[in-house]
Design a protein around this nucleic acid. Structure first.
Lengths: 212, 212
DNA sequence: TAGATTGTTAATCGATTAACAATC
DNA sequence: TAGATTGTTAATCGATTAACAATC
């Protein structure tokens, strides 16, 4: 592989799955794994795993496979997980609270450093050591903690406005749970989590299965 | 387009986004929309929208565009949204509760008909008119309500077992929030929602932006 | 050495885009 | 009629897979 090739985004999106599977293998006490075995665990072909990894270097041994811990360390470093990332969360409804309370973020290098909401009744409340703040504190917290990553969990009607505020304050990447496509500058990364859309793509297949 | 072509899954996954955007347009009182205008709202090219729709029929008028309400009705019918889909939700932690309480599901043709958990402390509690039931009631509820769609929101360690139970009881499509890839028969549809993986793909780009 | 598995190349497959005749 | 926009074809682009020399 030409190391100068830019890895496609599809590859970047698979790396966290490789990392996670390697973490499970490590917990299980498995020291070595082949691309074949790793692929079977996550439903990806062995060729694809090897091709994906080849964008970043040579991490395996012919005839042997990959050292689980070493490969995991490599991938975590590639993903920037050798550091902890401060994150702000805007919107502390049921979903926002679930996100704020989920230990998986903290365990995986992500630290929520600010919770924000517009509801006066919520402001001042505490969730996991953090005080819910009003939006006019957003820019300050983002600057003080050098935050570049944000999660939006507000209703659709407010999401674009919140995104504008976040970007204005310096955020460079957004995970948006609101059911609306955001308009953002080209150099800001936006990803969507949209369970209703996912479920609707599944009903398509279900509707066809039994002809109803 | 040859109407016999099977629409690729990427196309099926975009249809719900088209539908949602059309719903917003309808609310705004917009009656007609071109593929260009629709595309700008959701960051998809006009050609892609027209190509995607062409798998299912001819819904527009040359020189005019699409009638918003008609196209929405067509897409909803294609997705099977002319009926309400019963769904079971397994796992009623913070995330499960947020899902159970989200009005967006009910508004969009999805009806949660059963909540399940293994925690004895939770069983018997009520969330939105539904009683949290133990797993041994799962098969009964699935059969009684003809459920074919399920949401898993349990910890990773329990997710595979839950998936096995669901499929055994007749579920054909699963939305899995647990951070683990499920092993399932080829004819069962599985989709994943994995915020940590998404955030980790974003940290990749952030780490490169400022060389840290 | 024999067997296994990597990293990489080339072939294949599939999705997106561009272009335009048809037509409202 | 002139202008706009569809539906579709063909071209392009990009991702996946197969195959295999290298090598542990």
């Amino acid at each position: 592989m030409d190391r100068l090739d830019v890895p496609p985004d599809v590859v970047i999106r698979r790396l966290p799955l490789y990392a996670r599977s390697l973490r499970y293998l490590l917990e299980e006490g498995v020291h070595s794994v082949s691309s074949q075995e790793l692929g079977e665990r996550i439903n990806v072909t062995a060729a694809q795993i090897r091709k994906d990894l080849s964008y970043f270097g040579e991490f395996g041994k012919q005839g042997i496979g990959y050292d689980v811990e070493k490969l995991l360390n490599h991938i975590e470093r590639i993903l920037g997980l050798n550091q902890r990332w401060p994150v702000v969360l805007v919107g502390v409804g049921y979903l926002g609270q679930a996100i704020a309370r989920y230990e998986g973020f903290h365990k995986q290098g992500l630290q929520i450093v600010g919770l924000f909401d517009t509801d006066p009744a919520k402001i001042g409340e505490h969730v996991n050591d953090l005080t819910i703040l009003p939006l006019d504190q957003l820019a300050r917290v983002i600057r003080e903690h050098h935050v570049r990553l944000a999660i939006i969990a507000v209703p659709a009607a407010q999401a674009q406005h919140v995104a504008d505020l976040l970007i204005e304050a310096g955020v460079r990447a957004i995970l948006n749970y609101a059911p609306i496509v955001l308009q953002t500058p080209d150099d800001v990364w936006v990803r969507y989590i949209d369970p209703v859309a996912v479920l609707h793509s599944l009903t398509y297949y279900l509707a066809r299965e039994s002809g109803d």
